[in-house]
Design a protein around this nucleic acid. Structure first.
Lengths: 151, 151
DNA sequence: AAGAGATGTTTCATGACCTGAAACAACCAT
DNA sequence: ATGGTTGTTTCAGGTCATGAAACATCTCTT
């Protein structure tokens, strides 16, 4: 993993620090816009994330917790609040009477769709980059995340 | 901004969606590691952010709130908890008796330094990129954020 | 110099999120 | 059938966050 001779310590060289800083800025802006978009639909960030998940596929509580990386007891409250607004409902799982499936209502699906659209629009800063640049960015991010570059 | 003819709508083309997704992954990982590093020092994320700010420079409550983009009344509680742990203390501002400066104690500064080190270490995925690649990534991120590329 | 308005901090009420422990029902393996 | 495991909820306790109100202090205007 990198030669020792001439290694400017990836921890401290100015270039790396600047990239880390830029990523910090991206992270901050991403979060701001996400919370803002959620708030425009009278949702909190957590509620928006759960609704977004369920719009793809109804899920048992347990799996929501895994996706959110939090305790199942926490999910109970979030789904409670979504249910109180009529965006989600709990259905028994016919295959296992212990589990409850959280499934979005029609209104929940519509809200999720609008949310997704405003989010995509909010993330538009990529528009300033050409296709070649976006491809480059994609490959660099993939490598950074340890994913294979070739599809 | 971009020709209309042949424009694949930056909102929906697969490349852009993938980049957006990758950025989402980066954001998630960044946050996880930040919270984890904070927790290893028995701090919450908010407390770690404030302590990190104060380690650079003592600040009045109001300015902490601006940095965190939250209400000043919220900062009171966070600094209360840092103060209760002996990491920060409030000092009167000689120039204006209304304001209270939050200044880290020696222990607070030491904690901030250790935190910063573990954070930098946690952000090490950049090590997999060459200098040329990091430079490229820096420029792309700058452009994406609407910053000038040339220093 | 005095009063009026602005500013900085705190307190309080309220609510969302989050965890960990405990309860409960239902599953599954022996 | 019994015992252990798993999925969900409830509860207590803590942090973060907002907005309104109180309070002290500053600053501007006259």
């Amino acid at each position: 993993m990198g030669t020792l001779v001439g290694m400017a310590s990836t921890r401290t060289d100015p270039l790396t620090l600047e990239v880390v800083d830029l990523i910090g800025t991206v992270v901050a802006r991403y979060h701001e816009e996400y919370e803002l978009a959620a708030a425009q639909h009278s949702l909190t960030g957590a509620q928006a994330r759960v609704l977004g998940l369920l719009a793809l596929e109804p899920l048992p509580m347990r799996r929501i917790a895994v996706s959110l990386r939090c305790e199942p007891s926490n999910v109970t409250g979030i789904v409670d609040r979504l249910e109180a607004r009529g965006l989600v409902e709990r259905r028994p799982d016919p295959a296992d009477r212990r589990v409850k499936l959280a499934v979005p209502t029609d209104e929940g699906r519509a809200t999720a769709r609008r949310l997704r659209e405003s989010l995509e629009f909010a993330r538009e800063p990529l528009a300033g980059l050409s296709v070649a640049e976006r491809t480059l960015l994609r490959d660099l991010l993939r490598r950074m995340l340890g994913e294979p570059v070739a599809p």
